[in-house]
Amino acid sequence: MIEFLGVSKSFGNHKALEDANITIEDGTTIGIVGPNGAGKTTLIRLLCGILKPTEGQIVIDGKDLEKYPTDIKKIIGYLPEEPNLYERPKAGELLEYFGLLYGVPRGKVHERIDELLALVGLSDRKDWRVSSFSKGMRQRLAISRALIHDPKIIVLDEPTMGLDPLTSRRIRDFIKTLKKDKTIILCSHYMNEAEQLCDKIAIIDKGKIRAYDTVENLKKIYIKEKMFKVGLKNMKSEILDRISCDEKLKILERRENYIIIKAEDYKDLSYILKEEVIYFEDLTPSLEEVFIELVGSKND
């Protein structure tokens, strides 16, 4: 279990993270979402022991990170925002270097390297120099470096940033395969990505954590009302009157062929749907739009 207890981090006078309080259960996947400069990377670096908090405490498995940094760092695998790889060595050598530094036994390290390179699809590049790698390959190599010591906690800072949709997807699929028995903390600009992969999402903006909950709860909390666009075969005044009298429903727009209705829940619409429906669309905002609203309104 990972606990942030009132963690703040300042650079000079600038507060990059303010009073963060979150708890991450073992085996869950957590998404950290926020705009540029929100403090995502700062939060993650604090978690990896790369930065030291100005205030507060980070406790992992009951141990204070500041007191037992080496013990804790051993169980964390970290993918930095930029791959930050040495250029000179060959892919295999690089992994060996980090494997040994992370304490993987010398006898096992090569086996582990082959296994990981196969997982990320770089087996044939083992003896290529890192400098010859493309961006996507570097990212995959960096992921395998993060996993070399089979860490319990995996921290990924924007794993799909700047990659083409196909590669992004491959990486997302790969993360899904990891999900089974690991704690994953994942940083992203994209709510969609977080929604797809994560059990819980923290929305962070200007150094403050605005929300931290499961995807469903977030939806429940922030998407109070749903919107539907419904077109009926005969837009009779009788049914429309009934809708406008219904307290649970509200007509936002009324056109010749369709109406847009706001409702708290889908089932409130049930009697309407018994009519002959020729058109139906769910206009409910996605979590992404909620996020933009949440973050955007405050930015203005």
């Binding site: 990896c48 790369i50 940094p69 080496t70 013990d71 051993k74 964390i76 930095p80 930050n84 980090f98």
Partner: peptide
């Protein structure tokens, strides 16, 4: 300059 130090800082050493 190449930001590779970040990974070193993440290593389990003092």
């Amino acid at each position: 300059e190449r930001r590779t130090g970040e990974m070193l800082l993440a290593l389990p050493t003092e």
